[in-house]
Design a protein around this nucleic acid. Sequence first.
DNA 1: TTCTCTTCTTAACTTAGGTGAACGCTTTTA
DNA 2: TAAAAGCGTTCACCTAAGTTAAGAAGAGAA
Lengths: 193, 193
Amino acid sequence: MEEALFNFISNYISLSNEEKEAILDLDIFRQVSKGTVLLKEGQKSNEGYFVLQGCIRTYYIIEGEEKTTAFYTEMEGTTPHCVLNNKPSEYYIAATEDSLITISNANMEAEIFQKFPKFETLCRILSEELLAKEQINFNDFKTSSPEKRYINLLEKRPDLLQRVPQHQLASYLGIKPQSLSRLRTRITKNNKS
Amino acid sequence: MEEALFNFISNYISLSNEEKEAILDLDIFRQVSKGTVLLKEGQKSNEGYFVLQGCIRTYYIIEGEEKTTAFYTEMEGTTPHCVLNNKPSEYYIAATEDSLITISNANMEAEIFQKFPKFETLCRILSEELLAKEQINFNDFKTSSPEKRYINLLEKRPDLLQRVPQHQLASYLGIKPQSLSRLRTRITKNNKS
DNA sequence: TTCTCTTCTTAACTTAGGTGAACGCTTTTA
DNA sequence: TAAAAGCGTTCACCTAAGTTAAGAAGAGAA
């Protein structure tokens, strides 16, 4: 399974065996089961998460309602905001499936950047790339109606529709579960007629 | 004016005079006047923009309509998506005010990272920070109604309401200009009664 | 099994944003 | 200077999402 990570990294930089060892030595691989909460609102943390297998999500609880804002699946990951600003987290992170993830932390990063500057290059590229993706996602969201967003999702991440509960998907699309349900019947009816 | 940039950078790393010189030698400072289009849809580019004074925005033209998705003001900046994926740009970037900005390019970056690895650290930190901010913005947007978004904007970036045309603000909030206008009168009426 | 909790769906009603059109006002352009 | 274009606002009507409530299906626990 660690191979998946090295494969992913090899898209960006090449790793010597020594460097691979250094990563394995960090002991960052964790198996988490469905429903496990990795980060809670109000909690401070300096951990970053990267999904090798499975799915995790971030969500807020606003006026008693869960609002899912992101899903991370294979070869995706996130460093929570609270790690960067060192304030209590405003949101939760939990596994929506049994998952294999890496959990890294800020100190460990500093150390390895020193030993292998190459890793800093990797992290810079990854976060620039992520930033660009995030901006495109945001742009798409802003410039689309809920219905278009759903259709977009059908095209771009069809797996999510299968592996994730509808009510989580709904808030991810910025609407209520009832509206998502209605929207889906509206679309299938129109396609038939 | 260059001082503003060095001040900003000093929040993250300290620069020697030699390093400051290296930046100045890059000759990246540009004065652009209101309306100047920096990047067009369909165009390839490897330039990044950073605002020292003024305001630039990114916008799409979708079915003949401008959709503004971001504003960048003092000490904010962006590397367009097309620079990172090396494909034609999907959106425009233009100055909404007479502005003083830096225009850097990818080659120049590679060169300076080599000479001064410190700059790569700076760029990694900046883009991680930006990514986190972008995610928070996205989360706020997803979990709010247009009205709440407007009220949020009133609190967080009141300057924008003053310096930017209403119709650009409207699409930035994900609604039509007419709706923004209605929404504003609704809010002020409710506050009075 | 039975009970409970969660998830998803449907329905009726309300509300807010979209649409198309019109009107002043300002800015640009001819 | 006159005409045109752009911008912000208002209105009436339409449409889709929010709200509240109810019920069916499935999962998990006692």
